[in-house]
Design a protein around this nucleic acid. Structure first.
Ligand SMILES: [Zn+2]
Ligand SMILES: [Zn+2]
Ligand SMILES: [Zn+2]
Ligand SMILES: [Zn+2]
Lengths: 152, 152
DNA sequence: TCCTAGTATGTTATTACATAACACCCTATA
DNA sequence: TATAGGGTGTTATGTAATAACATACTAGGA
C-alpha cells in the first residue's frame, strides 16, 4: 500500500532534485536522507531526533552532518526551522522563497503553514515608522489545530 | 552624572516592584539583579552572559538562578525572549501583556519594539481559515536600524 | 596526465543553551 | 508549632549547535 504521505514525499524529493539541478547544487545522500526523514514525519523534529533516525540501520550519523544538511535545505526553502522550539519541518510547497507563518498545535504538535503577504507589508511599514529597515521576518504561532479542536 | 539610561532603569525597577506587589509576587534579589543587568544593557543578552555578569563581585551565580528569574520576568512581560537567537531584552514599556514584534539590527544588535495590533487580527483570521485557533504569536525581524543606516 | 580549486562529507572535540532533582530557607496561616 | 507554598542554592545532567581539521570527489586548466 502506498499512502498519500508517501506520494507527497516522493514528490517533494523530486522537486528538491530539480531545484538543486537548477541552482547547480548537489542533492547528496545526507541531504536526501534528512529531507526524507522530515518529509515522512507527522510533526516537526528536533535535530537530535533526526540524528538518531538518520543513524538507524547504517553507520552512525554525527551532528555536523545533519546540521549541514539542515542549513542547506533551509536555505533552499525546502525545510523551515521553527525558532520557538528549535525544530525543523519539511515545507510542503517545495521551495517557495516567500515567507510563511508556522503555527504549531499545542496538542498534536503538527505545524500548519500560512502565507502572510499582507502582514509583511504592514510590519515593514510599522518598522519603517521607527526607522528600521526590515530584511527578514519570523512569524510563528501556537494554538490548536482543526483536528484537535474537533476531538475536544 | 546620571545618564538617561540609568533613569530609565530606575523607572523600570520601580514599575517592576509595583507590578509584583499588585500580583502578590515577590520581587526578590536575583530577580531584581537580572532585570537591572538587562535594563543596563544596550543590546539583548544571552543567558550565559547574564550569568557571568550576575556573578561579578559576589558569589557565583548558577544557571538555574538566572533562568528562573528570566522565566518570571518574561511571564510578567518585563523581559522579552528573542527566539531567533535565544537572547533576552528588558521591555521598555514595563509590563505590557500585549504582543510586540522585536526587530534586531544586524549591525549593532540593538532591538526595537514595535506593536502590531492589526497584524495579530489578520493572522488570527488567516489561521482560522485553516481551522487553526491561534493563541500565542511570535513576531521577530532582522534588518538595519536607523542609526546604523545613517552611519552607512 | 597532473595539478589545483571548489564543494561536500567524516570525525573528534568542544561550546553554548537549558533543566531535573533535591536540600534548604522563609513566611503566612491554621 | 506544625505545615504548605513559594523561592533560592547546588550538583549534575540533558539538549542544541559549531569549531577545526582530515578526507574524498569533481571539474577545469597547465
Ligand atoms: Zn514552506
Ligand atoms: Zn492538533
Ligand atoms: Zn515590551
Ligand atoms: Zn543598528
Amino acid at each position: 500500500m502506498v499512502t498519500s504521505k508517501e506520494v507527497q514525499m516522493q514528490d517533494l524529493i523530486r522537486q528538491a532534485e530539480a531545484l538543486c539541478q537548477r541552482s547547480g547544487m548537489a542533492f547528496t545522500a545526507p541531504r536526501r536522507r534528512v529531507l526524507e526523514i522530515l518529509a515522512a514525519s507527522e510533526t516537526p523534529m528536533k535535530a537530535y531526533d533526526l540524528i538518531s533516525k538518520a543513524g538507524e540501520g547504517g553507520q552512525a550519523t554525527k551532528p555536523p552532518t545533519v546540521y549541514r544538511a539542515l542549513d542547506f535545505l533551509c536555505q533552499l526553502g525546502l525545510v523551515h526551522r521553527i525558532e520557538q522550539d528549535a525544530t525543523f519541518v519539511a515545507c510542503n510547497h517545495a521551495g517557495h522563497a516567500q515567507p510563511v507563518a508556522l503555527f504549531v498545535c499545542n496538542s498534536c504538535l503538527k505545524a500548519t503553514e500560512v502565507a502572510y503577504d499582507e502582514v509583511s507589508h504592514i510590519l515593514e511599514k510599522a518598522a519603517a515608522a521607527k526607522g528600521f529597515n526590515l530584511q527578514r521576518l519570523v512569524v510563528e504561532g501556537r494554538g490548536q489545530c482543526q483536528e484537535c479542536a474537533m476531538a475536544a
